[in-house]
Simulated scan of single mutants.
Amino acid sequence: MKPRLALVPGEPAGIGPELCVRLAQQPRSDCDLLVFGDADTLRAAAVALHLPLRLIGEAEQVRIPGDLRLHAVSNTASNHFGTPDPRNARAVIEALELASDACLQGRFDGLVTGPVHKAAINAGGIAYTGTTELLAGRAGCDVVMMLANDIVRVALATTHLPLRAVADAITANGLLSSLRIIHAALRRDFGIDTPVIAVLGLNPHAGEAGHLGNEEIEVIGPVLEALRAEGMRLVGPLPADTAFLPGKLAGFDAVLAMYHDQGLPVLKYSGFERAVNLTLGLPYPRVAVDHGTALELAGKGSADPSSLFAAVETCARIAAQRRLAG
């Protein structure tokens, strides 16, 4: 049996719905998809793109391009592409909750998510910091954010923090947890028996032997030594400005960056269109697009669907790998 994947379009006023319509035009041999979203919004996206769309029930067979299985989660207010309505925040969150719960219950083998609009959700009266945090809370586990394309995998020790707060957030316990999650995911989800993980320093030149900061000496280095003693292959702490040179990168299976803008600009420059966002540590694979809602493009038919296509392919591949691993 093909893996069953749940798909959540995200913000209805953004490009998520039309990317799902484009996805429905592609024949799939790697997975079965079910969308959790608003039927009228998906139909409106299909009309805007001049593409066929036939929304079918969960048990029906996809037969022709444009067929899309749907679990309806209706918006409260009429949707207008390009203009988020906070009244629809509840439907966005409900779709994520229903899909994640279905994965936790074993009804689906993985979750793919489109872009959400944090400001609209919070304006709708729902305290929301991000989908990664929401899914981790429902699963009751620690997770790590990793972004990946065909060239590099970059995980983050901290995510969406002000730069002033990053140094205090780099702790021994946090790094131990993150590296164990990354190591386990590379083995289980990517089939790498003995992964090599590069770990960046926090400071320029990885602290320059303490002259530019002590975090590498006092926190990062001791964690790497402890995990090497457990058998992990860890390289670092490395200066971030040279760690991504092609000759070095070829020897790493993943890179752990200390903060968001230390690692992600390199990944996005190397291949933004095919980049995806993975949540490591969940009981099921979750893969998201690596872009925002692009409100200025919504409903115009010009949004590039490559990241969503890559997210579905990646999630299906990981789900199949987990089945093989048992």
Rank of each mutant, 00 (worst) to 15 (best):
R4A: 08
L5E: 05
L5R: 00
L5V: 01
L7F: 06
G10Q: 04
E11V: 11
E11K: 02
E11H: 05
P12G: 01
L19V: 15
A24G: 13
R28H: 15
V35H: 04
D38C: 04
D38R: 11
D40C: 10
L42C: 13
L42D: 10
R43F: 11
R43C: 08
A44E: 14
A46D: 03
V47G: 12
L51K: 09
R54L: 05
G57I: 07
E58H: 13
A59W: 15
R63Q: 15
G66W: 09
L68A: 03
R69V: 05
R69I: 07
L70Q: 07
V73S: 12
V73D: 03
V73F: 02
N75F: 06
T76L: 08
T76A: 09
T83D: 15
N88S: 01
A89R: 00
V92M: 12
A95E: 01
L98F: 06
A102I: 00
Q105K: 10
G114L: 11
P115K: 09
H117I: 09
K118L: 12
I121S: 04
G125E: 01
A127Y: 15
A127P: 07
E133F: 08
L134T: 10
L134F: 09
C141G: 00
V143W: 12
A148S: 12
N149K: 10
D150M: 05
I151D: 12
V152E: 02
T158R: 08
T159G: 09
H160W: 06
L163N: 10
V166Q: 06
A167T: 14
A167N: 05
N173S: 12
S177G: 09
S178A: 14
R180Q: 11
I182E: 00
I182V: 05
A185T: 03
A185W: 01
L186A: 11
I197S: 00
L202S: 08
H205Y: 14
A206H: 08
G207W: 12
G207A: 09
A209H: 13
G210R: 08
H211R: 14
H211V: 13
L212Y: 08
L212T: 07
L212I: 04
N214V: 13
E216N: 02
E218M: 12
V219Q: 06
I220D: 09
P222G: 02
E225R: 10
E225K: 15
A226N: 04
R228N: 10
E230P: 12
G231F: 06
R233D: 10
V235P: 04
V235Q: 10
V235D: 08
G236F: 07
D241Q: 12
P246H: 15
G247L: 15
K248M: 12
K248D: 06
L256K: 00
Y259F: 01
H260F: 10
Q262P: 03
G263N: 01
L264Y: 03
G271R: 03
L278T: 00
L280A: 00
R286L: 01
R286Q: 03
V287C: 00
A288K: 01
V289F: 09
H291L: 06
L297V: 02
K300M: 07
K300L: 08
G301L: 11
S302D: 14
D304N: 01
P305Q: 15
P305K: 01
S306N: 11
S306A: 11
A311Y: 07
V312E: 04
E313S: 11
E313W: 08
T314D: 06
C315W: 04
A319C: 03
A319D: 10
A320C: 13
R323Y: 14
